[in-house]
Amino acid sequence: MLEINNLVKRYGHNEAVLKGLDLKVEGNCVVSIVGASGAGKSTMLRCINRLVEPTSGSIKLNGTELVNLKGAELRHARRKIGMVFQGFNLLDRLTVMENVLAGRLGYVNLYQAISRRYPQADIERAFVLMERVGIAHYANKRADALSGGERQRVGVVRALMQEPEVLLADEPTASLDPRTSEQIMMLLQSLASELALPVLINIHNVAQAKTYTERIVGLRHGKMIFDGVPSDFNKDALDAIYGGIEAPDDSITEPPNTSAEVARHDSA
């Protein structure tokens, strides 16, 4: 069970990105988080595994408080939180198998990691999961030789290798073409039920959110303004979330580089 209470995130002295968020996810439920760009979806997800440091509030995963963990404790907690990224975030120059096994980095020791001598059980699990998503025959191919949909499958398998207790997906389909993105959404949905895993999906595409998830959370300006089942997600809810910002229903996909990312790259 994931429980978020009064989560606040503020970058520097700017206006807070998250303004006291509460969210409770129980069981193997697929939750989609919708909202315009800059609504705080991505920040919220990254606060859960502490890629972004929350300013205040509490995040509990199966009873463990995550917000003030440090060092090895934080790394141990992160092992239980799988994450799938918008840009796949693969190790491009390594093989698919190495990418998948990288999901075990939190479990193996440094020698095993560097020499690629992973435990037999990990390798078997990797083959089973890769077979499940249809990429087992690519095991020794370089990750950058794969197509977008295949790369995202590698990303999903890597996250599942962690034996996570919750799966976070940050715009997992935004860099993919419409057909492939449907496939990935379907995959996430079925994996959630197979593995009895709660999944949080940040998503821009409201139609997909309604089709593939059981619960929709709407964010606007860092506040939750909708929480309910897809059938309750009507025109009013849509207007409340996106009103005056952009037309969401047409935006099936968006270009892989959002302006925020480009800006961050420039300043780096």
Partner: peptide, 18 residues
């Protein structure tokens, strides 16, 4: 979804290609 018996046909070892 995957029938258990197909798993036995999967390779059980893996070595990094040199």
């Amino acid at each position: 979804m995957t029938p258990p018996d197909t798993q036995s046909s999967l390779p059980r070892t893996w070595k990094k290609p040199p």
